[in-house]
Amino acid sequence: MPEPFVNGDVHHSACGICPSRFHAVGEFDVFERPTPECPFSKEDGHRYLSDGTPVCVHPEKVGLPAARYKSEKLPLTAELHLPPDPSALVAYLHDVLYGAAPVLLESLISQAQEQIRRDFPTLDPIQVLRQALS
């Protein structure tokens, strides 16, 4: 059985009943907010779709984009959207990278390097990322 996405970290921002504490990434869906489509179960206090798929309703707390990872077997991806103002890059990247799920970091860092080189050719992507991560 795969490890839960959030394990042993009592300081993680995921709710105590979040499916991320019990299931691996890809074994639960993430919604933007609670909806009638994923009501609370009176039996255990968790949210589920009608097919039994566990649902997290706080993407910002688990660092995963809202998507139907389990119910529609969607791959885990994240898109970076750099701000047009280069002076906002460090703060934007800091927030995105520190709020992202660890499984997304490699992809986000690669996207940042590529987009900084393309959109801001006078900036050193490594230096910008170092500042964002410090």
Rank of each mutant, 00 (worst) to 15 (best):
E43M: 12
S41V: 08
L80V: 02
L82P: 01
S50K: 15
K73I: 01
V55F: 07
E72D: 08
C18A: 12
A67N: 12
R47Q: 13
H23G: 00
V62G: 01
P83H: 09
E32G: 08
E43W: 07
A14D: 04
I17C: 09
H11R: 14
L76Q: 03
F40T: 06
A67R: 11
V57P: 00
H58M: 02
D85P: 02
K70E: 07
T53C: 07
C18L: 11
P59E: 02
E37C: 07
K70R: 15
H81G: 03
P75K: 12
L80Y: 02
G26S: 10
E32Q: 14
E43P: 01
P54E: 08
R68A: 11
L80Q: 04
C56P: 00
D44C: 10
H11S: 15
A78W: 04
K42E: 14
Y69F: 14
E72P: 00
P54G: 09
H46K: 14
P36D: 15
S71H: 03
K61D: 11
A24E: 13
L80E: 04
V62Q: 01
D51F: 09
T35I: 05
E27S: 08
A67C: 04
P54K: 07
L80N: 05
F40M: 11
H11G: 04
A14L: 03
